[in-house]
């Protein structure tokens, strides 16, 4: 469904992604693992073309999207959930959801506000509250719901468990499994191996912007040296 071929991305002069190759198959949940600074966020931003790779190709649904403006990438069916949440704090929950709304494309689930409120009951209760009045966990839920309003075929989640209470992390895991059951493909960047193991089918490990491991968690368990070298657990 999504494929990165030898992408090289830079921040200013800093070379972050180094000939990175990876792919995501339709209907699966893939976790992108690696320690801080390994290039996880840059990978996600490079897929969204918020950081445009200098060389290499990103293809989505067999189309080369490299160099496209991010809004066209989003309209192709890629849904981006940023690490820092970036909800619109002055807008109400309903207005936040409205910003994310895009017409459905063939083959994607068509999300309605009611469906999202079923998954995120907290948001329903507070639908007329402004973003800044929400707790951290609620904000995290809102970013996901907002992106789902665009009816994405593939959801890119950047470190959803970072900086939130353990009890919310559990809810988050349930939500992701729930989404998967509904047929949404997910690429999730994580540092938390426990979390990744629960939600994902496959692990992709990167270090210094290059692929180091690609396989199931069973494969990963069979290679403890990989975990030691790249995940600092």
């Amino acid at each position: 469904m999504l494929e990165c071929k030898n992408i090289n991305s830079f921040y200013g002069k800093a070379h972050i992604l180094n000939d990175l190759c990876m792919s995501v198959d339709a209907g699966t949940v893939v976790s992108l693992l690696g320690r801080n600074g390994a290039g996880k966020t840059t990978t996600i931003k490079s897929i969204m073309q918020m950081v445009v790779p200098k060389t290499g190709q990103v293809t989505f649904l067999d189309r080369d999207i490299t160099g496209w403006p991010p809004h066209k990438v989003a309209r192709m069916g890629l849904g981006y959930v940023p690490e820092e949440r970036r909800i619109f704090t002055d807008l109400t929950i309903l207005e936040n959801l409205e910003v994310g709304r895009q017409p459905a494309r063939d083959g994607s689930i068509e999300w309605t506000i009611e469906m999202l409120f079923e998954i995120f009951p907290n948001l329903k209760e507070r639908r007329n509250n402004r973003g800044k009045e929400l707790s951290g966990g609620e904000q995290q839920m809102l970013t996901i719901a907002r992106t789902l309003m665009g009816n994405p075929k593939l959801l890119l989640l950047d470190e959803p468990s970072e900086g939130i209470a353990p009890v919310i992390v559990e809810q988050m895991a349930e939500t992701i499994l729930n989404l998967k059951a509904q047929g949404v493909t997910v690429l999730i960047s994580e540092q938390n191996l426990h979390f990744a193991r629960i939600v994902a089918d496959r692990a992709v490990i990167i270090e210094s912007g290059s692929l180091k491991f690609d396989g199931t968690f069973l494969d990963l368990d069979a290679q403890p040296e990989i975990q030691g070298a790249y995940l600092s657990v």
Binding site: A74, Y80, R146, G150
Partner: peptide, 22 residues
């Protein structure tokens, strides 16, 4: 109007949600 207010706060994010901010 909602999009305008959202863009006031974070234009890049509005773009990433599929809105042609240009």
């Amino acid at each position: 109007g909602i999009l305008v207010r959202a863009a006031t706060q974070d234009r890049e994010m509005v773009g990433a949600l599929g809105v042609n901010q240009a």
